[in-house]
Nucleic acid binder design. Structure first.
Lengths: 146, 146
DNA sequence: CGGATATCAGGGGTACTGAAATTC
DNA sequence: CGAATTTCAGTATCCCTGATATCC
């Protein structure tokens, strides 16, 4: 794949797809030793930033499908990292709250994740990394308006 | 997802993964009307650039797994876009060759793909698109050496 | 023999659709 | 009633492992 055709190598979607796949491998490989998954971090980060939230809200914030949220949250519940409780104001909702153990886990995963990011963009200088994130953020925002 | 937590939005791997997912949706949506798949283009582009090649070689060039190549190439054979013939020099190999119809198809898909790229990075200026591709290429190359 | 190629069977993760049950 | 939330069943695609047959 080092010799991918120029027509492919020039397409942003192809580059992004291949880098995304590699990033996924780095994540799996880096998180396996601590028994975590990337979406564990995404859910914990959402709860950290926005406080206790319904499963629907978590999914909307970090881009997880409604059908997948339940199993993912259940894994965190089983590990004692979050607790689930019905919302007394609206009994359709399950309110998910981070436990102290979940808080510690989040900080641990944040460290691991940052190391993985370093590994992923190791070829770029600090200034270039900032620029890449800036460009990617604008592309992302243009497809996720407001 | 417009309001993803900052901890997530800052991670290159998260941005790339979400953009990759969106790019995939654009590809599926853009290629469905012409009955094509992204890997059809990847295979045709490889054959265009390197000439007739074995399935193994195609897979290595454009990053398709050895187990998946056969079914993908068969789709192109069924559509009359490529032909398959055993290599007389090495009868283990199936040499895949683009047909005139495949050549036309490749040019058609190239146009469609370029429109999708424009759509994907529509938020960026021409200079910024070049810069993004440059940064992504360096990240890609650092993980696919030589 | 070792090594490479093609092929197939199957697993696992991810994204998604459709539908049901519950509650507002 | 319509709409929102949770939950589950099932589908599709992609990436990957393992095994087999064939051939160099």
């Amino acid at each position: 794949m080092n010799q991918a055709p120029a027509r492919l190598r020039r397409k942003p979607s192809w580059l992004i797809s291949k880098i995304s796949l590699h990033a996924h491998r780095l994540l799996v490989e880096g998180l396996a030793p601590v028994g975590a998954r990337a979406y564990h971090y995404a859910i914990l980060a959402t709860l950290e930033e926005y406080g206790p939230a319904s499963q629907m809200a978590i999914g909307q914030h970090c881009g997880i499908d409604r059908s997948d949220i339940h199993a993912m949250v259940s894994e965190l519940v089983d590990q004692g990292l979050v607790v689930q409780a019905p919302d007394p104001q609206d009994r359709r909702r399950n309110i998910i709250t981070v436990t102290p153990a979940g808080q510690k886990r989040f900080e641990q995963l944040d460290t691991v994740l940052d190391e993985i990011q370093d590994n992923l963009v190791t070829a770029l200088s600090p200034a270039e990394r900032t620029q890449l994130v800036s460009l990617l953020t604008r592309v992302f925002n243009s497809h996720n308006p407001r």
